[in-house]
Amino acid sequence: MMIPVRCFSCGKVIGEHWEEFEERARDGEEDPAAVLDDLGVDRHCCRRMMVSHRDLVDVVSPYQ
């Protein structure tokens, strides 16, 4: 639904980087790996949180 606040495995706070990642790598043209390096999301456990995430709030909100 929303990006998790922390990485499931190591506990690093990753939620704060999601909006920039989405803007630059998902909607933009930049290489996701380079964006994650730039954001300081180094470990592969934290990187999978960002790479595999999908926002669903807009999908479910008509059914409230």
Binding site: M2, I3, V13, G15, D55, V57, D58, S61, P62, Q64
Partner: peptide, 18 residues
Amino acid sequence: DEDIPIIQLNENPSGENQ
């Protein structure tokens, strides 16, 4: 950290704001 998203609030179909 001040920029952690907690929850995105939209407008309900009935026109009310969440």
